Simulated scan of single mutants.
Amino acid sequence: MPTDAVTTEFFDTTGLRLLKQGFALTRRSGEWWLHTQRRCVLLPYGARETGAAARLVLAPARGVELEPVAATATEPSENAGLTVAKRILADRLTRPERVTDGSARDALLVTLHEMLGRIAEADVDVRLGERAAAGRLRVAVRRVRGLLGVAAPALGGRLGAGIRRELGWLAGELAPVHEAEVLVPRLRQRLAALPEEFAREPAQARVTRYFADCGRARAAAALGSRRYLQVLNAIDVLEVVLAETPRTRWPKAARRPAATVLPGMAASWTRKTTQELRRAGRDRGLSEARHAVEKLRCLVDSGCRAGIGTRGVEVPLGTVGELLDEQRVAMTAHRHLRALRTQAADAGEDYAVFDALLRAEIAAIDQYSARAAEAWQAARSALSPLCTDGT
Rank of each mutant, 00 (worst) to 15 (best):
Leu19Trp: 04
Ile362Ser: 13
Ala373Pro: 04
Arg98Ala: 14
Gly303Val: 12
Gln367Pro: 04
Phe354Pro: 01
Pro185Trp: 13
Asp355Met: 02
Arg48Tyr: 09
Val57Arg: 03
Arg164Tyr: 06
Pro316Leu: 02
Ala70Ser: 04
Ala90Trp: 03
Ala120Pro: 01
Thr94Asp: 15
Leu358Lys: 06
Leu242Arg: 07
Gln37Lys: 10
Cys304Lys: 13
Ala266Gln: 01
Ala5Pro: 00
Ala330Gln: 03
Phe354Ile: 10
Ala180Trp: 02
Thr13Ser: 06
Phe11Asn: 01
Asn233Met: 14
Asp91Lys: 14
Arg290Asp: 00
Gly215Arg: 08
Val144Ser: 03
Glu65Tyr: 00
Glu65Ala: 15
Arg105Leu: 14
Arg95Gln: 15
Ser268Arg: 13
Ala280Val: 00
Ala205Ile: 05
Leu194Trp: 05
Pro44Ser: 12
Gln21Ser: 15
Ala347Gly: 11
Arg284His: 12
Thr270Met: 04
Glu201Cys: 04
His336Asp: 13
Gln275Glu: 08
Phe10Gln: 07
His336Ala: 09
Ala122Ile: 04
Glu173Asp: 06
Arg118Ile: 12
Thr388Phe: 07
Ala259Leu: 14
Ala175Met: 07
Ala373Val: 10
Gln21Val: 04
Val57Asp: 03
Ala140Thr: 01
Ala345Phe: 10
Phe10Val: 10
Arg311Asp: 14
Ala61Gln: 04
Gly51Arg: 14
Leu16Tyr: 13
Trp250His: 09
Gln367His: 13
Ala154Glu: 08
Ala306Gly: 11
Ala59Thr: 08
Glu374Ser: 06
Asp125Met: 07
Ala53Ile: 09
Asp389Phe: 10
Trp376Ser: 00
Arg145Asp: 09
Leu116Trp: 03
Ala370Trp: 01
Arg17Lys: 10
Phe354Cys: 08
Thr13Phe: 11
Val124Ile: 06
Ser287Glu: 15
Gly63Asn: 01
Pro44Val: 12
Ala292Thr: 00
Gly51Asp: 14
Asp366Pro: 06
Arg158Trp: 05
Ala373Cys: 12
Thr111Met: 06
Lys86Gln: 15
Gly318Tyr: 01
Thr7Phe: 05
Gly318Pro: 00
Lys86Leu: 07
Pro385His: 01
Pro60Val: 00
Pro202Val: 04
Leu147Glu: 01
Leu89Ile: 10
Glu97Pro: 10
Ala122Tyr: 05
Thr270Lys: 01
Leu170Thr: 05
Val6Cys: 10
Trp32Lys: 02
Arg335Gly: 06
Val64Tyr: 08
Asp301Glu: 12
Arg105Pro: 05
Leu56Gln: 08
